[in-house]
Amino acid sequence: MDKQSTQSSEVLSKIERARQARRHKFYLRDDHVTLSHGSGGKATHNLIEGIFAPAFANTILDRMEDSATITLGDQRLAFTTDSYVVNPLFFAGGDIGRLAVHGTINDLAMAGADPLYLSAGIILEEGFAIEHLQRIVDSMARAAHEAGVLIVTGDTKVVQRAKADGIFINTAGVGSVRASANLGQALVAPGDRVLLSGSVGDHGIAIMLAREELDIETEVSSDSAALHTLVAALLDRIGTRLHCLKDPTRGGVATALNEVALSAEVSIALDERAIPVHEGVRGACEILGLDALTIANEGKLLAFIAPEAEQEALRALRAHPLGREAAVIGTVQAEFPGMVFLRTDIGGTRVLDMLVGDPLPRIC
């Protein structure tokens, strides 16, 4: 057996072990769906592992990556889909249309793919203002144009009043995986460095402030952005020394890192002082009793890289407009697999778990 076949066999074995571990960690005990099942945290994983994963199980889905990577002939493609139900529809830094385009592009980017084509499925509620629909569609068109992708197919449905909430959007996307990209959670190994491309919590806090009309004097805007050019810059610089990318959206950085730790059978040690958080987000979290590491982001990535590539990767990220605040925030370890630990500002250490509950439903 050649080296590549041996590596593929080891990866598949690790995926199967992670799948078994998830079955023991996540339990679906609910009789009805709740808002927490859409939070991206433990309840979401309980729903996925209890209902969807067993029903649809296959070697591609079982990897549980942000996008499915498939091979057609000699071409590797990434394929993904996502739905957007954010409330409110318009917020500081973006709107549901811009978010729908960026979110799907970013899922493709996490597979190391250059996005090519998107679809747009739109569900409208009877009575929804045409003015708002035009604004959202124009925003989607601009976001797609800026990212260099085409929206090539779609579908529209209308339901009766009170049977939806204005507008819901589904986008699916296809991208071409770069030759230098060999990425996946199962490839993360002890010694890898964890890099974060910028500040955390901006999107979730922007949504909360817009929705609740809280009397908090701070200016926070969503970080919604298309990350494929940032990923391209990173791959161009360090190539196969980049092992995995994660998009810390629902459930935030904490949930994304726990997913990796479980799938890769490793632990992750973070340094709280190294994690960038804007003062407006930090202040809002303190007032509201939230942890910025569990708050959604829509324009940030986590990168797991070989230790010798740490400084090169950091320079590549910081040279890009979307990575100026990039930082090395942690290290992958072998001990206590499946766990994430946070070294706090005051010198202690605590377990950083997945998001539990649902402090902010419908953030994307």
Results as ranks from 00 to 15, higher is better:
345 D>K: 06
312 E>F: 00
309 A>R: 10
304 F>A: 08
127 G>Y: 07
143 A>P: 12
181 A>C: 10
39 S>D: 02
213 E>S: 11
258 N>H: 08
350 R>C: 00
54 P>D: 07
160 Q>W: 01
360 L>C: 07
85 V>F: 14
329 I>M: 02
131 E>N: 14
125 E>S: 11
111 A>K: 08
178 R>H: 00
268 I>A: 01
337 P>M: 01
84 Y>I: 15
29 R>P: 02
95 D>P: 05
214 L>R: 10
7 Q>E: 15
90 F>G: 04
113 A>F: 02
318 R>Y: 07
159 V>T: 12
211 R>F: 00
199 S>R: 03
71 T>P: 09
62 D>T: 10
170 N>H: 13
133 L>M: 01
67 S>Y: 03
286 E>C: 07
309 A>H: 03
357 G>Y: 05
286 E>R: 11
79 F>K: 15
225 A>R: 15
360 L>Q: 04
10 E>S: 10
93 G>V: 12
131 E>G: 09
44 T>I: 03
239 G>N: 08
80 T>P: 00
361 P>K: 02
100 A>M: 05
145 H>Q: 15
340 V>A: 03
84 Y>C: 14
357 G>F: 03
224 S>P: 12
314 L>V: 14
195 L>Y: 03
350 R>Y: 00
56 F>K: 09
271 D>A: 14
241 R>F: 00
106 N>P: 03
359 P>N: 01
285 C>W: 02
142 R>I: 13
38 G>T: 03
151 I>T: 14
66 D>T: 04
334 A>V: 08
